[in-house]
Design a protein around this nucleic acid. Structure first.
Lengths: 115, 115
DNA sequence: CAGTTATATAACCGTCAAGGCATGCACGAG
DNA sequence: CTCGTGCATGCCTTGACGGTTATATAACTG
């Protein structure tokens, strides 16, 4: 699933979010992103090679649209993690309960571990 | 959703996948990944600051576990994209269809103008 | 106390990627 | 055929990131 790395990039996620509703040409995306056209084309190349988008040549323009495959993969990868919040939480629930009730014994004033 | 960038990294995804079933100490993760301990600790720091994992100090060990929040966010972000394959899946994706019994049907012979 | 275990942090390095500009290429218009 | 448009590619710089070794911090052990 290299598509995840492609989508993780902020600019590319903006592109993907922009393509969610309607397909776009490169110029439209350049307009939407406020970046140089080569930069956008390079991001589109990354997304293309990751299978996230596909391009259709129309006149001198390239119309880009989303491909569902990577999203399905991501959804499938995410599926087992859904148990964390949909099914009875079990162990996690106990963990949260402990955190809400009081800190663990024996380890107060621990080092800053954030979160 | 900075957690996506955190999860996108291959090593960190291995950590996350490893933590999916059972919580682990740093040493266990080092063992599982075959990397140096500082490298693992840095990845865990990134995951911690992204809210993907949380740590609990137990004796001299830190027990890491997954935090459901980012996964729920990712699920929520992914939700609108689900229309791409739950709704009329027609154009480009029948070969990946999971509920179609027979993979027959004529090929659409779409122009592969990418890759 | 000293010593060991478990983990975090610091300093450093090589690599890689994102952004810019300039250019090449394909296509349609004239 | 020539020009303009729309997009891709090549080159370059810079900043971020993953990995390592060495060191600091914290807690248990004797």
């Amino acid at each position: 699933m290299d598509a995840l790395a492609a989508i993780a990039e902020p600019t590319r996620r903006r592109i993907v979010d922009g393509l969610r509703l309607r397909e776009c040409t490169v110029s439209e995306l350049v307009d939407m992103l406020g970046m140089s056209q080569p930069a956008v084309s390079k991001h589109l190349r990354v997304l293309r090679e990751a299978g996230v988008v596909s391009a259709q040549t129309r006149a001198q323009q390239r119309v880009y649209r989303l491909e569902p495959g990577p999203f399905r993969e991501l959804d499938a990868w995410l599926a087992p993690y859904r148990r964390m919040w949909t099914h009875h939480l079990g162990e996690l629930e106990r963990h949260l309960d402990r955190k809400a009730a009081g800190p663990r014994l024996g380890n107060k004033a621990g080092p800053r571990l954030d979160n």
